[in-house]
Design a binder for these strands. Sequence first.
DNA 1: TGTCCGATTGGT
DNA 2: CCAATCGGACAG
Length: 207
Amino acid sequence: MTNPKIIKCSQKLPREFYTRANVVTIARELLGKLLVVPARDGTRVSGMIVEVEAYRGPLDRAAHSYGGRRTKRTETMYGVGGTTYVFFVYGMYYQFNVVTNARDIPHAILIRAVEPVEGIALMRKRRHRQPDHNLTNGPGKLCLALDIDRRLDRADLLGNRVWLEEGEKIPRSRIMSGPRIGIDYAEEWVDKPWRFWIRDNPFVSKR
DNA sequence: TGTCCGATTGGT
DNA sequence: CCAATCGGACAG
């Protein structure tokens, strides 16, 4: 389960990684990165990102920020790249997003699945002893396993509550893409291939 | 204030 | 295939 190829004592990804303009490119590059959310006692709990979706702000009908919509909930999407957008859906689940681009340009990347790397025993406890392959293979599930909720909305990814590290290099040949999930309302944007995942990785969400 | 529905999940 | 479950968005 533990991935030996993950580089330990890695540095946080720099602000410049997140503030670039092309959210689709950044989304693809997030595959293989390590998402770290320390537990209350400071223990490292982390997972390698294996599936993401890019949301392209005002132009993208699937995005909460479509048409420049700016409300109490979506306000954090307008923050500077390298911050978080965490929202609540279906009355029971949270969804974790990485905000990209400059302040006031509401681009975001939904983290759909990670592969458990550190703190797996704690993840099992938080997920009520589900089998390991079911711990973090979906956007709502990974928030439960990593203890992500509204407290982590608007967090700075260069701070100490949640951050990303370099992780593992994924060869281009192992990266797959396809339409995003659960956005049937998005009209002509439904077919945009802005979902990316690592081929054959067992922690990619079911479909 | 009232209604509609969701960037999901787990069980039938 | 469908229910769970509740806050956000928007109409009135």
